[in-house]
Design a binder for these strands. Sequence first.
DNA 1: ATAGGCACCTGGTGGC
DNA 2: TGCCACCAGGTGCCTA
Length: 289
Amino acid sequence: MPELPEVETVRRGLAPSMEGQIITRAQVDRPDLRWPFPDNMADRLNGQRVEQLRRRSKYILADLSSGETLLIHLGMSGRMLVSGDPLGQFVHDHPAPEKHDHVVFDMENGARITFNDPRRFGAMDLLDTKTAESHPLLAKIGPEPLSNDFSESHLIEALKSRRTPIKTALLDQKTVAGLGNIYVCEVLFRAKLHPATKAAEISQRRIAALVPIIREVLQQAIEAGGSSLKDFRQADGELGYFQHSFDVYGREGEPCKTPGCSASVARISQSGRSSFFCPYCQRELETNL
DNA sequence: ATAGGCACCTGGTGGC
DNA sequence: TGCCACCAGGTGCCTA
């Protein structure tokens, strides 16, 4: 589920309850998610102050006063619930525990953060803060799309020898960090590129045009998430799942949103994932100039 | 080095 | 109501 914008929204939603606060109690209901939790995870979290909440790609990183960093990935179905928040941003009472609540953090300010993940594709680990970026899970990830590290020249270089479809290449976290199935579909729609086009066959001009489109799509989604945090204070305090309308994702059979286009959104399967696109606006061109 | 397919796991939906 | 097939926003690992 969560791609970069959702993870960023979760990070922002957690920050007021966690940053600068001590974890008074960490509870874990099972030994693992996708992988085993690190040894004595709860003990290593208890009593630590969360100095800073960061995000790298789809990972949330909580730097602790102990010199360790808690790495959190939400997988496909991971959710964060905030309750008992004295700031009143979320619900005050702690709700009854639910099925698939796997990790609970109680903070000194009374906030409780509950990590719920039915499919358990999520993960948590503890890293040495000083070397967190070189952790195997993070080391090979490409540039942050909203940072200056992400540039037209980078994307051209990263794609020029890729024979794989552009859809697959953008989904590859080594190309650029944080894109997932939804936002890749949305990006390709705005760029008028057919998802099956081989990356290396697309002109440099059109690859370069992807850079601002990727930034816009993600930035707009983050803003939608931010306003959902502010304006629609969720009754249940759940973070990261905001109303967002997509141009093509999940709209198979529905009309293309391009003004004047009478085609309907199509769906194909690429390496086991659904790609949604407009077969007219994103038709494969003879030349991708 | 690169690309494709499988695996992990649960839950929701729609058809019969 | 039950059963079944299929789908789901991620990504590491194995194989050619």
